[in-house]
């Protein structure tokens, strides 16, 4: 086998593995594994409506944050 191919394969698989690892780390940091029950049941509540709600909530959060930034000055 050509050395170049081995190098490429090693590089690609380490990269892919790395991506999976980073995704996993992100999920842990994000608290997605903190509550195993909720994590397992999450799939049941994943309809279109729920997604819309989640997006709305996200938007509301942003708006409130912006508003607060204008008004609130930590002393």
């Amino acid at each position: 086998m050509d050395n170049g191919i081995v190098a490429m394969m090693l590089g690609a698989s380490i990269f892919l593995g790395g991506v999976a690892l980073i995704a996993f780390l992100w999920a842990v940091k994000n608290g997605q594994f903190d509550d195993e029950e909720k994590f397992l049941n999450a799939v049941k509540f994943d309809g279109v409506e729920d997604l819309n709600d989640a997006a709305m909530q996200e938007k509301k959060k942003e708006e409130l944050k912006k508003k607060k930034q204008r008004e609130y000055k930590p002393e």
């Binding site: 509550d35 909720k38 959060k61 409130l64 944050k65």
Partner: peptide
Amino acid sequence: EGVIEANINFT
């Protein structure tokens, strides 16, 4: 209105 985040742990 006004609730930013509510996160409940089932366990």
